[in-house]
Structures are given as structure tokens and as C-alpha cells.
């Protein structure tokens, strides 16, 4: 097996599996860990995780494909997710999504040519009181790999993209 966890991730793995009476129960958190380590959940990563937990590859695949947070293919550095569910729909989420599609010249779930952004329309983020809301995943940020941006407008979302672009330019 060519894949291996870093020392840090291995420590985290040991902590996680200690929480359950069997190894399979650790599958979701360990897939999150593997995705953070290896970028996305490729077939190789699924095999690796299955091997670690003694879960047949087909079962790992069933799980990895059932849940939306596992990226089966590489995504952009920033995964920008715009909520358009009821509260966000009523307060401008659709307009923000339209604007970002144009600005980034991508369709829903598309990635920009430079690989910096993936844009996606998502369901309610539990931020309806501060709608519209945008979630940005940045796996390079170990502290806050998932950040929420709330009370957004077309202008603030536009500025957010510019900030992220600058961040990508400065530390790759």
C-alpha cells in the first residue's frame, strides 16, 4: 500500500477509532481525515481506508458515494457553496449564485480553469437567521477548513471571492 498517514493524522486516527466498539463505525470520521490528508477520496484512498478499518472496499465505496462531503474527484482550492434554500432564496441567495457563476465563468459544481474555485449550490446551512449564507471549504487551512460567511450580498460575495483569490495567490 503506497499511501500512509502523516504522524499527526495517525495520532488523530488512533484517537478516533478508540471511540467505537468496532472499526467500521469510525468510517465517516476516518474518511474525513483521509480527505484532508490526500485531497480527495480516490479509489486508492478508499482502499487504504478500507484496509485500515477492515471494511471491504465495496462498503467504503457505498459510504463515500452516499455522502455529499466526500469529494470523489479533485475540487478547486476553495469550494464555494452558496445556499439557495428557503431563507436564502427569500433574501438573495439565488442572485448571489447567479453572480458568482458569471464572475467565475462556471456552472453549478464547476471548477475554474486555474483550479482555484469550485462553485456549488447547496441546501440549508443552518444559518437562516443570517441569510444568505455561503460556506467555503479550504483544506489548506488546518484551523478552519470550513468557514461560514453570513449576511451576504452580491457585493460582499464578490469581495469574498477577491479575498480568496488573493489568498490563493499568496500561499499557493
Amino acid at each position: 500500500m503506497s499511501l500512509a498517514f502523516s504522524e499527526n493524522a495517525q495520532r488523530r486516527f488512533d484517537l478516533i477509532v478508540g471511540r467505537y466498539p468496532n472499526l467500521q463505525a469510525a468510517l465517516l470520521p476516518v474518511l474525513h481525515l483521509a480527505q484532508a490528508e490526500f485531497g480527495h477520496v480516490s479509489p486508492e484512498v478508499m482502499d487504504f481506508v478500507g484496509h485500515l478499518l477492515g471494511v471491504p472496499p465495496i462498503k467504503v465505496q457505498q459510504v463515500a458515494t452516499f455522502y455529499t462531503m466526500y469529494n470523489l474527484a479533485p475540487v478547486g482550492r476553495f469550494h464555494v457553496q452558496v445556499c439557495t434554500n428557503i431563507a436564502c432564496y427569500l433574501t438573495g441567495g439565488k442572485e448571489i449564485l447567479c453572480h458568482l457563476k458569471q464572475k467565475l465563468a462556471v456552472e453549478n459544481k464547476g471548477t475554474t480553469a486555474d483550479g482555484v474555485f469550485t462553485l456549488e449550490e447547496v441546501e440549508c446551512l443552518a444559518a437562516c437567521g443570517t441569510a444568505p449564507a455561503i460556506q467555503v471549504n479550504d483544506p489548506h487551512d488546518p484551523e478552519w477548513p470550513i468557514a461560514y460567511h453570513e449576511n451576504q450580498t452580491v457585493a460582499s460575495a464578490d469581495a469574498l471571492i477577491e479575498r480568496l483569490r488573493a489568498k490563493a495567490g499568496s500561499n499557493g
Partner: peptide
């Protein structure tokens, strides 16, 4: 798992 659209209390 708070996910019912419109709901933002458990968070």
C-alpha cells in the same frame, strides 16, 4: 444533524 431548511437553533 440540524438540516431541516429554515432551522438554525442547535448550531
Amino acid at each position: 444533524d440540524e438540516g431541516e431548511p429554515g432551522t438554525f437553533k442547535d448550531r
